[in-house]
Amino acid sequence: MRFRIKPLSEQVIVITGASSGIGLATARMAARRGAAVVLAARNRDAIEQAAREIRHHGGSALAVRCDVAEEDQVRDVAEAARNAFGGFDTWVNNAGVSIFGKIMDVPVDEMRKLFETNFWGVVNGSMVAVDHLGRRGGVLINMGSVLSERAVPIQGVYSASKFAVRAFTDALRMELEHDRLPVAVTLVKPSSIDTPFREHATNHADGIPNLPPPVYAPETVARAVLHAAEHPRRDITVGFGGKMIDWMGAAFPRMTDRLMERRAVWDQQINGNFETAERPDGLWEHGEGLRERGDAPRMVMEHSVFTQARLHPMMTGLLAVGAGAAAAFALRRPDRGADRIEEDRSRDVDTSWDKRRAAVGRTAYAP
């Protein structure tokens, strides 16, 4: 399944859920790096304004309104990309919504609606993308979550949808590799990200939705997505906090259950420490667009050293070797200093002994 993957500056990239958050950050970053971008989302005004902004700065962008739950609308996005740019090279299934609340408090019709976007939206996008890329080669990137590996309370329905996305993506990848089709498939799994995610979520909890720390900037995910567009990986976890949850859940599942059941974990997701204005329910209608960041006061990590190390292992290895050499050199210098001090002490002792012996000699033999 060897095929040439174009440099980002030569690619056409389709991004769903591009009106805000990770999708918007990825579209803007891709355009700055020379890619032509097709922005797809329910919020027509937001993506059209974002496309105008990109073109104003010299980039190439096309906005196509799309509800990813509707297969026909997803196919319209692919057709628009073919008409405008002759096709596309990378397709990013990013659109998603969430529900906060205990599973028993969430109506089943809302669960189904969430799966229409989070799961069936990925299915629709993947089918359309593979139909096109299977003939010319390219990259399919699906947006999972660290909750694709470990479910959490309060976001149980969202976790279930992301588990389904991971299973679908893994199975699709194996089938494409078996059939030797020239499509690379990557699953990106972000940790908590500072986007309008919680503002757009449906809330059945007794409090204000929040994201457990550490919280990372949307650009950390955008960089991972664009890296995968040029250097496909099986999966990429963004943020060490999420990777820790993954490791703990795999190694100590019951202990992790107990930790998740503690009140502190629930309070991290639901609290009343800040005020929010009334917003549209993103489950049923599009949310506020053109905002990459959320509005909650929180500390945000602008970079993930863990993710960068995983994406660039050779550079990280060279830096580690350089750091080790510098540390070894630094540790050697005090040793030489200590040797000199010891030599000085020995010299002082010898000198003092010679002086005392001379003094004794003068006293014993003085005329």
Results as ranks from 00 to 15, higher is better:
I22Y: 10
G23K: 03
R28Y: 04
A30C: 11
G34N: 13
L39M: 15
L39D: 05
L39K: 10
D45I: 04
D45C: 01
I47Q: 04
I47A: 02
E48I: 08
Q49P: 00
A50G: 05
R52M: 12
R52T: 07
E53N: 07
E53M: 08
R55E: 15
H56L: 09
H57T: 07
H57A: 12
S60D: 14
A61C: 10
A63C: 13
V64Q: 14
V64W: 08
D67M: 13
V68P: 09
Q73N: 06
V74G: 02
D76C: 06
V77E: 00
V77R: 01
A80V: 08
A81S: 11
G86P: 12
V92N: 02
N93K: 00
V97N: 06
S98N: 03
I99M: 03
F100A: 07
F100M: 06
F100G: 06
G101K: 08
G101V: 09
I103W: 11
M104Y: 00
V106H: 03
V108E: 11
D109C: 03
D109F: 10
E110A: 05
E110Q: 15
M111L: 10
F115M: 11
E116F: 02
F119Y: 15
G125C: 07
M127W: 08
V128G: 00
A129G: 03
V130S: 00
H132Q: 13
L133Y: 05
R135Q: 15
R135V: 02
G137T: 13
M143P: 04
S148N: 11
A151C: 10
